[in-house]
Computed example of a mutant assay.
Amino acid sequence: MPDTSTLRLPADAAGIARAADLLRDGKLVAFPTETVYGLGADARDDAAVAAIYEAKGRPSFNPLIVHVPSIEHAKELVHWSGTAENIAQAFWPGPLTLVLPIREDAGISDRVTAGLSTLAVRLPAAPLARDLLTAFGGPLAGPSANRSGRISPTTADHVLSSLDGRIAAVLDGGPCPVGLESTILGLAGRPTLLRPGGISAEQLSEALGHPVMRRQEREAISAPGQTASHYAPRARMRLNAAEWREGEARLGFGDVDCDLNLSPAGDLDEAASNLFAHLHQLDAAGAEVIAVAPIPHVGAGIAINDRLSRAAAPR
C-alpha cells in the first residue's frame, strides 16, 4: 500500500505510460471508463489483485471484472462461444460485461474469480481506458475505484476522496459519460442478465433473438454488483419520495423543486450519468437523509433503480 498521497496523472501519453509502468510494477492505478472509474491491477498478479481487495475493503467472495484491450484478448481468457461473438460484435467496445467459463490456461489470479469457474470480461469504449490497456498490454482487474459498498466514482476527485494514499495513482480523464457500471450478461449457460446497466435487457434480447433471463436476488453471487447493500452514501436513503420532508436533501427527477435534479427534462440517460455525482455532492454536504423522487422503471431507469435500491438497503 502506498505510504504517500496518490498521484494524479494527466490524460496524455506521459500519464498513460507512467500508469502502465506502475501497473507492471504490481501497483494499483485508477482509470476512467465510459461507466465509472475502475481500480486497475494486473489480473495475473496475485499480490496486485489482493491489494485491490485490501484497498477497497472488498469481501473476498465478490469477483472482479477483467478489462481487456481487444476481443482477441478476451478469447485467450475464456471459452468463447458463438453467442459471445454475436453479442460482442453488437456491443463491444462498450458498457457490457460478459461472464463466460474461464480457460484452464488463462493465467488469471484465482482471487479475481473468487473461486468461481467463470470470468467476467469487458472491452471498454472509453479511449483513455483503451489506450491504457494497450500500453499495459494485458488484462486489468478493475472494480469501481472506491471503498467497498460506497458510492461509485465518476470523477478523479471521487476516487481520491475515497482512496487517496491507498493506491499509487489515478489517471484523470474527467467525468465518466455513462455514469453507471456496465450491464453484466452471463453466458455460461442460458443468457442471463446478472446486473442491469447501460445496455438494456431489451437491447440484449433483440441481439440474442429471444428474451434474456433475469437473475433472481436469492441466487448466489455470480458477478460483481450483486450484494444487497452497495453504492451507498453515508446518508440514509428514502426512495420513491412523492413529497419532501423537512430536513431531507432532495434529489429530484423531472419538473420538481429539489436541491439537485438528476434530469429536469426527465431524460433517463442524463439521470444515469448524474446519479453517482449527485449522491457524492449531497453526501459531502452533510445530508443525513437523501430523499429521491420516483424514477420510471423503464430503459436506463431499471439500472438507476437497481443502484438506488442497493444504496438504500440495510447496511
Rank of each mutant, 00 (worst) to 15 (best):
P2D: 14
T4W: 14
L7K: 07
R8S: 13
R18S: 15
A19N: 07
A20W: 00
L22Y: 04
L22V: 03
R24N: 09
D25C: 14
G26M: 07
G26H: 10
A30I: 04
E34F: 10
G38S: 03
L39V: 12
D42S: 10
D42T: 04
A43Q: 04
V49S: 08
V49T: 04
A51C: 10
A51W: 02
Y53D: 02
K56D: 06
V66T: 03
I71D: 09
E76D: 10
L77H: 01
N86F: 04
Q89D: 13
T97L: 03
V99C: 08
P101Q: 08
G107E: 14
D110W: 11
R111M: 12
G115P: 02
L116G: 03
S117A: 14
V121Y: 06
L128G: 00
L128E: 00
L133M: 12
A135R: 10
A135M: 11
F136I: 02
G137Q: 06
P139Q: 07
G142A: 15
P143W: 01
R150F: 13
S152N: 06
S152I: 05
S152G: 09
T154L: 10
H158E: 11
S162Q: 15
L163W: 08
A169Y: 05
V170E: 01
C176S: 14
P177L: 07
L180R: 00
E181R: 09
T183C: 09
I184G: 02
L185Q: 01
G186I: 01
G186T: 03
G189L: 08
T192E: 12
L193E: 01
R195M: 09
G197S: 12
I199Q: 00
A201I: 05
E206Q: 15
E206N: 13
A207N: 13
V212M: 02
V212K: 00
E219Q: 11
A220R: 15
P224K: 10
P224Y: 03
A228V: 12
A235G: 13
M237W: 05
R238A: 15
A241G: 06
E243L: 14
R245L: 14
A249E: 00
R250M: 04
D255A: 15
C258W: 08
N261F: 05
S263Q: 09
A265C: 05
A265S: 15
D269L: 11
A277Y: 07
L279W: 01
L279D: 00
L282H: 06
A291E: 03
V292S: 06
A293W: 02
P294L: 03
I295Y: 02
P296R: 06
P296K: 11
G299K: 09
G299V: 07
G301Q: 01
N305T: 11
D306T: 12
R310I: 09
